[in-house]
Amino acid sequence: MNKIFSPFLIHHPFRNINFALGFLITLILLLTAILSLIYTPYDPNRMNLARRFLPPNSEHWLGTDQYGRDILSRVMRGAVNSIVVGLVAVSIGMGFGVFLGSLAAFYRKWVDEIIMRISDVLYGFPAVLSAILITSILGPGVINSMIAIGIFNIPIFARLTRATSLSIWERDYVTAARAIGRRNAGIIWNYILPNILSALIVQGTVQFAIAILAEAGLSYLGLGTQPPHPSWGRMLNEAQTFMGTSPYLAIFPGCAIALTVLGLNLLGDGLRDMIDPKLSRIQQQI
């Protein structure tokens, strides 16, 4: 019968160094984000003009910014922002992408042709440019940046779903399910999706990392998260003005972005290596 993927079925996952490191970094990020909702050393948005531009010290471990706000607290709360944007954007992309990719693989012929050609056009269009255009239409803000990043994820998941599910439609157990009269939607839900789940999870991890980078870029340009809410990209933008006098302002938010993306990339690489070494080839082809 159909092979159902579950990360819990992988034996000794921590023997894979990529997975172990990626898992650890991602776990620390998640815990930091959760912790920041109940505790941060200082209120991330509270200004204290008497304590502006303090370099890292025992009271403010990562220093303070131009308004005297604590950088560590802002970096911690910024993690929530990045995770939420990444999760929502990937969910939008995966939800619509899997639906469209499944339609293309099931109906084939002109439905496949139309969906794939549209997704080719979207896929070929630079993601940053699309995101900037969409946020400029919808207006800057965190919700609109999630939508913008989510939209450019749709063709990626549509192409992956189509590419991986086409061959599964030809398998004997799917033919058998059809022969006993199972409905098409039931076949997709019970037979096709469980078989492509591993590919979707791996791609989802990679896209999560890309979404965090994209959000940081949009916030840097002033199109993503709006002040005073802490966002790593926005913090870098503000830091650039004071780089000559307070270079530490530009270091920590960037480290947070790079570490998060590194963790997710390693997690994705590790999962791919463990689940299906052949998958990396398919992912390179789509």
């Binding site: 990392a209 980078l213 940081a216 870029g217 840097y220 990209g233 870098l236 830091a239 650039q240 780089m243 270079p247 530009a250 960037g254 972005i257 790079a258 570490l259 998060t260 993306v261 590194l262 990339n265 390693l266």
Partner: peptide
């Protein structure tokens, strides 16, 4: 290369300016 993939280009730019 893993570091290169994780670093946003604009942060790399800021660090190079620094």
């Amino acid at each position: 290369s893993q570091i290169g993939l994780a670093v946003p280009a604009f942060w790399a730019g800021i660090l190079l300016i620094l």
